[in-house]
Amino acid sequence: MNSLFDVIFTTDFAFSVLRVTTPILFAALGALISNRAGIINIGMEGIMLVAALAGVIVSSYTHSAWVGLLGAVMSGTLIAGILAFFTLKFKTHIILGGVAINMFASGGTVFILYLLSGDKGSSTSLASKVLPSVEIPLLKDIPVLGPILSGHHILTYVSIIAVFVVYYLLNRTPLGLRIRSVGENPHAAQSVGVSVVIIQYMALLLSGFFAGLGGAYMSMGYLSLFTRDMIAGRGWIAIAAESMGRSTTVGTALTSLLFGTADALSNALQVLKIPAELIATLPYVATVIGLVIYAVSETRKKNKKLKSPLVK
């Protein structure tokens, strides 16, 4: 047990929590926006994967990490746009659409990678660029806090800022109000002149945008190359985090951090001989439990209402 505490109570561990939380947080914020507009985008995993590959390819051909980032984010948005086009225009079922996106991504990225590099496993032969890490002046000199908070990848800081941006967007802007109203009652929103389809388009595009940032982080920060199926379930964990966070910005951010901690812990817990395979299931178990508690309490509330004499 002591050896575990030795691992956890270090600045290195706190630093790594933020590092592994970043992609989950990005994707969870994306899932949050589309969910608030009433559409479950389960294609997050696939969108992140495509964006991760796009970042590597674009940065290696343009020799610029920033153009690579742009490529990643644009490709993420584009894939979300395709999903939006099919679900909103052609009325493809959104869940099946998400399944299609994931299927496309897991094989399609390998297909494109093979055509460009002749390798099906990783992009080692493509000279891709990596986005920089940032030392924050003043903060970096503070003991304890400095080594935890300074020196992170630039997208890690962007992800933290994104939490505030999404909070502001959803709660303080006209677009946010429309997104929420469309999600809560599309007919009511329609009746007061909000175009449900346009709002849902925007929400899906935004979810693709954030998933794209998460994907870019994976291949241009977390690792410095693309490898097959490198998202490894982070898109699903993000959906779980959004669901556990009860579709609120703060809740989603905190659960993302919690799941990030669990992810970082899975390495630390190996000291205690707890298998990593089982630790990896913790976010999903937590989500199921959270979901059940919520569903039970909702049903109780509803039954109470039905029995109460005041409500007729």
Binding site: F90, K91, T92, F104, G107, L115
Partner: peptide, 22 residues
């Protein structure tokens, strides 16, 4: 041509076949 092409085809089939408006 690598076999992963098939997942692109599968995705297209899913998107179109469940598209009510198609």
């Amino acid at each position: 041509v690598p076999s992963e092409m098939i997942s692109i085809i599968q995705a297209i089939i899913i998107l179109l076949i469940s598209a009510e408006q198609f």
